[in-house]
Design a binder for these strands. Sequence first.
DNA 1: CCGTTAACCTGAGAGC
DNA 2: TGCTCTCAGGTTAACG
Length: 287
Amino acid sequence: MPELPEVEIVKQSLEKRVINKSINSVLIKNKNLRYKIQDNFIAKIRKKKILKVLRRSKYLILEFEKEQFLLIHFGMSGTLHLINKKKNNSKTNLSFYNSQILPKKHNHVILKLQNFKLVYNDPRRFGFFKYFSSKENIENYLDKLGIEPLDKRFNFFFLKRIMLNKSKNIKNFLLDQKYIAGIGNIYANEILYLSKINPQKKTYNLKDNEIKNLIKFSKRVLRIAIKKGGSSIRNFVNTKGKTGLFQNEFKVYDRETKYCLRKLCKGKIKRFFLSNRSTFVCSYCQK
DNA sequence: CCGTTAACCTGAGAGC
DNA sequence: TGCTCTCAGGTTAACG
């Protein structure tokens, strides 16, 4: 569930529930996530009070007292579930993303708070947890990331400057987190379609107008996606409640062989691989 | 520096 | 019912 809008949805829903709550206990059922959870992890975050929930790029961050932090990355398949304890022992699952039903398998980390618990589920285990003991440490760690696309500083002049002398293709550029942080495969495809730019076009070949469109549509797509609750793909379980709806707005992603949605365009969406990632394009619109 | 590939994992869906 | 194959919202090291 992992691009910027989806993590933002988790952040927004989580902060309604956990601010000023303490982590009473921690249960690790499987420490072998992308990076192995350290043995002292439980001791580090146990009894800590959560002051803030933050997001940076595709990372979710819990800030504790005394400037200590827990960083969570969801990888490809991580989800967070809030399970309410009811008096009669039944449970309600307020899934923050994707599924209303708590999966039975792959619950790897459980944070118990006062009246509920947070369950981290991740079938593929590409996600990870990382604890930071100071603001300086987490800032150093996050410094490798580029600008937030929704930041005001992400504008034409900024983008033009960092693209200068790059011979990368534009799609790989958008996906490279050290330049712009938070865009993943779905939104890169959508942004390029809306900007009418071929994913293989070299950044140094982009015209000013195309750079302006990239800025405009990056912000627009991500904002709308957040407004729609993110994208929920491959979700065949959920029937009610908290799923994202942006998947219904996809213009190119996962639309191979379907017609281009632009008026007067008779092009068909084609799919090919770029650096091992599915890339969708209308070759009539995207030059 | 650049693009690609493989690796890290499990599961869903397609096709047979 | 079941097998095999491909693909998946991410990241990163290694290679040519």
